[in-house]
Structures are given as structure tokens and as C-alpha cells.
Amino acid sequence: MNTNSNLYTVIYTSVVCVLVAAILAFVSQALAPRQEANEKAETISQILTAARFADKSEWDSKGNDAILSFYKENVEKAWLVNAQGEENGTLDISKAEIVTVAGLKKQNYAIKDGSELSLPVYRFKNGITVVPIYGAGLWGPVWGYIKTSRPSRAPISTTKARPRAWAERSRTILPSAPSLPATSRISTAPTARSLPSSKAAPPKIKREKMSRTTRLTPSLAPR
């Protein structure tokens, strides 16, 4: 057979392309469930890291099942909201249902289409709420997870003491900017903590005395 004829070349390349495509499609379908489980566990580990349960590196050493079971034990509620913040759906906690990055990308397109959004919100039993964000970056999309929480200690009441005197005597350093309202503080930089099973003590809030001249300077929160 003349391997350099036009007909042979066309048939040969067609057969090779169809064969290669079939092999890749088969392998992709066969491995898809495992890949999706890995992606789901990885997304949940990022949400749990934002919720300040542990560092990302600690989750990487755990298996998918351990991450999923930890999530199910510690999540209080997971729901979907529209652009006005009104609830328009729920995520099944028992199945550890979450919205992955691909789902967030679809919501990005929904903004352009003008259709109703379904944005996920996760609230955990430690009082932290995690909100995924997704948007355009410089060279490509950027996504992350923002946590909001109530402060661990409320500011000292100043109904009887003068505010200036209180500020002169002591200042409470909280792990986020004190200029934010006391009901919610936003932090995107989770601090390292050991896993709950090691029973680590919660961080202590530092008090330091400030002079009159320094009380007006912006707070530099220790991390």
C-alpha cells in the first residue's frame, strides 16, 4: 500500500483523530466522578480555611471524606441569596452541597444577562459566615472567600465613663479594624489555628495603655 498517497493520508489522519478522541472521552468520563469529588473537597477546604477552622495546609493532608464530614458537623446553614440579599434557595447540608468556582462563574454571566442571581452563603456554628466572591482580575478571573463574624468581646460600655477618659486609660485591640461597626467585622486573613480536635485555647485580646497623643492614630491590629 502506498503510504504517501493522498487518500491514505486523509483516511489515516481521520482514523487517528477519531481513535484519540474516543480514548480521551472514555478516560475523561471514567475519571470525572473522582475529579469532581476532589474539586468539591478542595473548595470546602478553602471555605473552612476562611471560616478560621484551620490552615489550608492542614486540610491538604486530610482526605476528602474527613473534610466533608468536618464541614457537615460544623456548618449551621447554607443558602442562596439574590442580588438584594433575599433568600431564594437552600443548599443541602447533609449532602455537603456547595457552589464551586464553575457555579460562581455562571453567576457572573447571570449578572450580564440580567437574570436572577443565586449566590451562596455559608454560616458555621462558630458564628462565622463565609461569602464566596468571583470577579474579573487583571489577567483572568479572581475568586476568594470572605468571612464575616461578630466580635468575640463587645466594646466597654461608656454610659457612665467619659469616652475620652476610657480611651486614655486603655484600648482593646481587636483582630480587625475598630472603625467598623461592632455588629460585624470583615476579615479576609484567617489566622493559623490548630484543628478543633487539639482543643486549642481561643486567642486572648490584648489591652495596652495608650497616651493621649497616640489614641487618635489608626489601629494596627496584631495578626
Binding site: Y12, I23, L24, N38
Partner: peptide
């Protein structure tokens, strides 16, 4: 392999192997 398309066929074979490796790593 036809001589005229040997580079293309090599590329297809290499791409097949690389994508298989990538899929198994993802899994």
C-alpha cells in the same frame, strides 16, 4: 505513518499521553 503528516501524528500521540497523565493527576 505517512511522511507528510508524521509531525502531526507525533503531536497527536504526545498530546494524548499528556492529557491522559493530566486526567489521572486530577483524579
Amino acid at each position: 505513518i505517512p511522511n507528510r503528516v508524521r509531525i502531526i501524528i507525533q503531536l497527536v500521540v504526545v498530546a494524548l499521553m499528556v492529557i491522559l497523565v493530566d486526567q489521572f493527576l486530577k483524579a
